[in-house]
Protein backbone atom coordinates (compact mmCIF):
# COMPACT_ATOMS: atom_id res chain seq x y z
CA UNK A 1 0.00 0.00 0.00
CA UNK A 2 1.33 3.42 -0.82
CA UNK A 3 1.39 6.11 1.79
CA UNK A 4 -0.39 9.25 0.73
CA UNK A 5 -1.62 12.37 2.38
CA UNK A 6 -5.12 13.62 1.84
CA UNK A 7 -5.88 17.29 2.17
CA UNK A 8 -9.56 17.88 2.82
CA UNK A 9 -11.31 19.79 0.09
CA UNK A 10 -14.10 22.35 0.39
CA UNK A 11 -15.20 24.04 3.62
CA UNK A 12 -12.95 25.01 6.51
CA UNK A 13 -11.81 22.04 8.57
CA UNK A 14 -13.54 21.34 11.85
CA UNK A 15 -10.37 19.91 13.37
CA UNK A 16 -6.81 21.18 12.87
CA UNK A 17 -3.80 19.70 14.65
CA UNK A 18 -0.63 21.72 14.21
CA UNK A 19 2.60 20.11 15.35
CA UNK A 20 0.61 18.36 18.07
CA UNK A 21 2.85 16.28 20.32
CA UNK A 22 2.47 14.52 23.64
CA UNK A 23 5.00 12.75 25.78
CA UNK A 24 4.91 11.27 29.26
CA UNK A 25 8.20 12.10 30.87
CA UNK A 26 10.78 11.03 28.33
CA UNK A 27 8.43 8.60 26.61
CA UNK A 28 6.80 10.06 23.49
CA UNK A 29 3.15 9.10 22.99
CA UNK A 30 2.41 11.23 19.96
CA UNK A 31 4.99 12.59 17.54
CA UNK A 32 4.45 16.12 16.19
CA UNK A 33 1.29 15.64 14.18
CA UNK A 34 -0.19 17.87 11.48
CA UNK A 35 -3.72 16.86 10.62
CA UNK A 36 -6.97 18.31 9.37
CA UNK A 37 -10.46 16.86 9.44
CA UNK A 38 -13.09 18.47 7.24
CA UNK A 39 -16.53 19.41 8.46
CA UNK A 40 -18.82 16.41 8.11
CA UNK A 41 -15.99 14.01 7.35
CA UNK A 42 -15.98 10.45 8.66
CA UNK A 43 -12.52 9.37 9.81
CA UNK A 44 -11.38 6.16 11.42
CA UNK A 45 -8.17 5.96 13.48
CA UNK A 46 -6.40 2.62 13.48
CA UNK A 47 -3.18 1.37 14.98
CA UNK A 48 -1.62 -1.02 17.45
CA UNK A 49 -2.07 -0.68 21.18
CA UNK A 50 0.05 2.27 22.26
CA UNK A 51 0.12 3.79 18.79
CA UNK A 52 -1.36 7.09 20.03
CA UNK A 53 -5.04 6.83 19.03
CA UNK A 54 -6.48 7.42 22.48
CA UNK A 55 -3.90 10.08 23.25
CA UNK A 56 -4.88 11.96 20.11
CA UNK A 57 -8.60 11.77 20.89
CA UNK A 58 -8.07 12.90 24.47
CA UNK A 59 -5.93 15.82 23.30
CA UNK A 60 -8.71 16.89 20.93
CA UNK A 61 -11.28 16.54 23.73
CA UNK A 62 -9.14 18.71 25.99
CA UNK A 63 -8.54 15.98 28.56
CA UNK A 64 -4.78 16.00 28.00
CA UNK A 65 -2.33 18.89 27.87
CA UNK A 66 -0.23 18.91 24.71
CA UNK A 67 3.52 18.83 25.21
CA UNK A 68 3.93 20.85 22.03
CA UNK A 69 1.82 22.29 19.24
CA UNK A 70 -1.90 22.84 19.47
CA UNK A 71 -5.20 21.53 18.23
CA UNK A 72 -8.26 23.56 17.29
CA UNK A 73 -11.90 22.64 16.89
CA UNK A 74 -13.61 24.96 14.43
CA UNK A 75 -10.98 27.60 15.13
CA UNK A 76 -11.18 27.32 18.92
CA UNK A 77 -8.42 25.79 21.04
CA UNK A 78 -9.30 22.29 22.19
CA UNK A 79 -10.68 22.36 25.70
CA UNK A 80 -11.94 25.93 25.41
CA UNK A 81 -15.58 26.61 26.18
CA UNK A 82 -16.46 26.95 22.51
CA UNK A 83 -14.62 23.78 21.54
CA UNK A 84 -16.34 21.87 24.33
CA UNK A 85 -19.71 22.96 23.00
CA UNK A 86 -18.82 21.59 19.56
CA UNK A 87 -17.25 18.30 20.64
CA UNK A 88 -18.76 15.14 22.01
CA UNK A 89 -16.20 12.71 23.40
CA UNK A 90 -17.04 9.08 24.14
CA UNK A 91 -14.07 7.40 25.83
CA UNK A 92 -13.60 3.64 25.95
CA UNK A 93 -14.25 3.49 29.69
CA UNK A 94 -17.76 4.67 30.52
CA UNK A 95 -17.73 6.91 33.58
CA UNK A 96 -21.13 7.55 35.18
CA UNK A 97 -22.54 8.89 38.43
CA UNK A 98 -23.41 6.10 40.85
CA UNK A 99 -26.30 8.02 42.35
CA UNK A 100 -28.12 9.14 39.20
CA UNK A 101 -30.41 7.01 37.06
CA UNK A 102 -30.04 6.79 33.28
CA UNK A 103 -32.92 9.23 32.86
CA UNK A 104 -31.33 11.71 35.29
CA UNK A 105 -28.00 11.39 33.47
CA UNK A 106 -29.63 12.22 30.16
CA UNK A 107 -31.73 14.97 31.65
CA UNK A 108 -29.12 16.91 33.62
CA UNK A 109 -26.12 16.28 31.36
CA UNK A 110 -28.21 17.15 28.32
CA UNK A 111 -29.21 20.43 29.90
CA UNK A 112 -25.53 21.22 30.54
CA UNK A 113 -25.21 21.15 26.76
CA UNK A 114 -28.25 23.32 26.13
CA UNK A 115 -30.78 20.64 25.19
CA UNK A 116 -34.20 20.33 26.78
CA UNK A 117 -32.99 17.37 28.83
CA UNK A 118 -34.74 14.01 28.57
CA UNK A 119 -36.86 14.84 25.54
CA UNK A 120 -38.29 12.81 22.66
CA UNK A 121 -34.94 12.59 20.88
CA UNK A 122 -33.24 11.26 23.97
CA UNK A 123 -36.05 8.76 24.48
CA UNK A 124 -35.66 7.58 20.89
CA UNK A 125 -31.91 7.03 21.29
CA UNK A 126 -32.50 5.19 24.55
CA UNK A 127 -35.03 2.93 22.86
CA UNK A 128 -32.76 2.16 19.93
CA UNK A 129 -29.95 1.23 22.28
CA UNK A 130 -32.30 -1.06 24.20
CA UNK A 131 -32.24 0.89 27.46
CA UNK A 132 -35.91 1.84 27.76
CA UNK A 133 -36.63 -0.73 30.45
CA UNK A 134 -33.60 0.36 32.45
CA UNK A 135 -34.00 4.11 32.14
CA UNK A 136 -34.89 4.56 35.80
CA UNK A 137 -32.18 2.22 37.09
CA UNK A 138 -28.85 3.26 38.54
CA UNK A 139 -25.93 2.50 36.17
CA UNK A 140 -23.87 1.45 39.18
CA UNK A 141 -25.61 -1.93 38.89
CA UNK A 142 -25.17 -2.25 35.14
CA UNK A 143 -22.94 -4.61 33.22
CA UNK A 144 -20.05 -3.21 31.17
CA UNK A 145 -22.17 -3.31 28.02
CA UNK A 146 -25.11 -1.47 29.57
CA UNK A 147 -22.81 1.17 30.98
CA UNK A 148 -21.30 1.58 27.53
CA UNK A 149 -24.78 2.00 26.05
CA UNK A 150 -25.66 4.61 28.68
CA UNK A 151 -22.49 6.55 27.91
CA UNK A 152 -23.26 6.34 24.19
CA UNK A 153 -26.78 7.64 24.76
CA UNK A 154 -25.41 10.60 26.74
CA UNK A 155 -22.84 11.40 24.08
CA UNK A 156 -25.20 11.07 21.14
CA UNK A 157 -28.20 13.00 22.46
CA UNK A 158 -26.35 16.28 22.81
CA UNK A 159 -25.54 18.69 20.00
CA UNK A 160 -22.06 18.44 18.44
CA UNK A 161 -20.16 19.06 15.26
CA UNK A 162 -17.31 16.70 16.06
CA UNK A 163 -17.87 13.26 17.56
CA UNK A 164 -14.83 11.55 19.07
CA UNK A 165 -15.32 7.89 19.92
CA UNK A 166 -12.69 5.59 21.39
CA UNK A 167 -13.33 1.87 20.83
CA UNK A 168 -17.11 2.23 20.58
CA UNK A 169 -17.94 -1.43 20.04
CA UNK A 170 -16.21 -2.87 23.12
CA UNK A 171 -18.75 -4.63 25.32
CA UNK A 172 -21.69 -4.08 22.97
CA UNK A 173 -24.01 -6.88 21.90
CA UNK A 174 -24.99 -7.28 18.24
CA UNK A 175 -28.15 -5.17 18.49
CA UNK A 176 -26.29 -2.44 20.33
CA UNK A 177 -23.53 -2.47 17.76
CA UNK A 178 -26.03 -2.21 14.88
CA UNK A 179 -27.90 0.62 16.61
CA UNK A 180 -24.66 2.48 17.27
CA UNK A 181 -23.51 2.21 13.66
CA UNK A 182 -26.90 3.53 12.52
CA UNK A 183 -26.85 6.39 15.02
CA UNK A 184 -23.34 7.39 13.98
CA UNK A 185 -24.35 7.28 10.33
CA UNK A 186 -27.33 9.53 11.08
CA UNK A 187 -25.18 12.05 12.94
CA UNK A 188 -22.74 11.98 10.08
CA UNK A 189 -25.54 12.49 7.54
CA UNK A 190 -26.72 15.48 9.61
CA UNK A 191 -23.32 17.10 9.09
CA UNK A 192 -21.21 16.05 12.05
CA UNK A 193 -17.61 14.97 11.61
CA UNK A 194 -16.78 11.58 13.14
CA UNK A 195 -13.39 10.53 14.45
CA UNK A 196 -13.54 6.91 15.57
CA UNK A 197 -10.62 4.97 17.04
CA UNK A 198 -11.14 1.26 16.64
CA UNK A 199 -9.44 -2.08 16.19
CA UNK A 200 -12.45 -3.31 14.22
CA UNK A 201 -11.47 -3.59 10.52
CA UNK A 202 -15.12 -4.06 9.53
CA UNK A 203 -16.01 -0.52 10.53
CA UNK A 204 -13.23 0.93 8.39
CA UNK A 205 -15.24 0.19 5.26
CA UNK A 206 -17.87 2.66 6.40
CA UNK A 207 -15.47 5.56 6.96
CA UNK A 208 -14.44 7.98 4.24
CA UNK A 209 -10.90 8.24 5.48
CA UNK A 210 -8.52 6.09 7.46
CA UNK A 211 -5.60 7.38 9.51
CA UNK A 212 -3.15 4.76 10.72
CA UNK A 213 -0.82 5.53 13.59
CA UNK A 214 2.30 3.69 14.66
CA UNK A 215 4.32 4.77 17.67
CA UNK A 216 2.65 8.16 17.60
CA UNK A 217 3.31 8.86 13.94
CA UNK A 218 0.92 8.86 11.00
CA UNK A 219 1.92 6.03 8.69
CA UNK A 220 -1.11 6.19 6.43
CA UNK A 221 -3.78 8.77 5.69
CA UNK A 222 -6.39 8.12 3.03
CA UNK A 223 -9.20 5.86 1.92
CA UNK A 224 -8.69 2.25 2.90
CA UNK A 225 -10.51 -1.04 3.11
CA UNK A 226 -10.52 -3.69 5.81
CA UNK A 227 -7.75 -5.65 4.12
CA UNK A 228 -5.58 -2.54 3.90
CA UNK A 229 -6.10 -1.86 7.57
CA UNK A 230 -5.13 -5.38 8.50
CA UNK A 231 -1.95 -4.95 6.50
CA UNK A 232 -1.25 -1.65 8.24
CA UNK A 233 -1.67 -2.87 11.77
CA UNK A 234 -0.32 -6.41 11.45
Amino acid sequence: MTKRKKKPQGPAPVLVADGLAKSYGEAPALAPLDLEVARGESVVLVGHNGSGKTTFLRLVAGLLDATDGDVEVDGHLAGSLEARALTSFLPDDPVLYDDLSVREHLDYLGRLHGTAGYDDEAAAVVERLGLTDRVDDLPARFSRGLRQKTALAIGLTRPFELLLIDEPFVGLDLSGRTALIELMAERHAAGAALLVATHDPAYVEQAERCIALRQGEVIFDGAAGAADVLALVS
Binding site: A61, G62, L63, L81, E82, R84, A85, T87, F89, P91, V95, L96, Y97, L109, L112, H113, G114, I154
Partner: peptide
Protein backbone atom coordinates in the same frame (compact mmCIF):
# COMPACT_ATOMS: atom_id res chain seq x y z
CA UNK B 1 -14.43 11.08 37.78
CA UNK B 2 -17.89 11.74 36.24
CA UNK B 3 -17.56 15.42 37.15
CA UNK B 4 -14.34 15.65 35.14
CA UNK B 5 -15.77 13.75 32.19
CA UNK B 6 -19.22 15.30 32.03
CA UNK B 7 -19.13 18.66 33.77
CA UNK B 8 -15.65 19.92 32.94
CA UNK B 9 -16.01 18.75 29.33
CA UNK B 10 -19.36 20.50 28.97
CA UNK B 11 -19.75 24.12 27.86
Amino acid sequence: APDVRHVLLSP
